[in-house]
Design a protein around this nucleic acid. Sequence first.
DNA 1: CCGTTGACGCCAT
DNA 2: TATGGCGCCAACG
Length: 112
Amino acid sequence: MKKEEDFFQAVYQIVRLIPFGKVTTYGAIAEALGSKKSARMVGWAMNASHRIPDIPAHRVVNRNGLLTGKMHFSTSEEMQRKLEAEGISVIGDKIQDFERYIWKPIELITLD
DNA sequence: CCGTTGACGCCAT
DNA sequence: TATGGCGCCAACG
């Protein structure tokens, strides 16, 4: 197992831990991995997540609650549709009441 | 080898 | 509020 693959698996594992009806951000995942400034690498890993089954990629958005990755789904509506199916309102590619649905993986580690 | 490009985020203006 | 620059770092031509 190469290290590069470990990074991918770490990202996928965290994404799989996102609860139903909740969302998280690229930055939050990067922070949980110990590379807070490497949010781009998380997005890079997510771009390759299509070949991995059972990855709720629609629950990962940017820090503003914007669906920046919607164009990477089968259709541009897929991401929003899945989020709304979980009770999350999306208007103009932006999650409404974002703070209410955010879930941070770093809290699993901090755990105070 | 080098310049560009990105499912990002923070800061300056 | 909006826009641009920079750090980050792997992939690609």
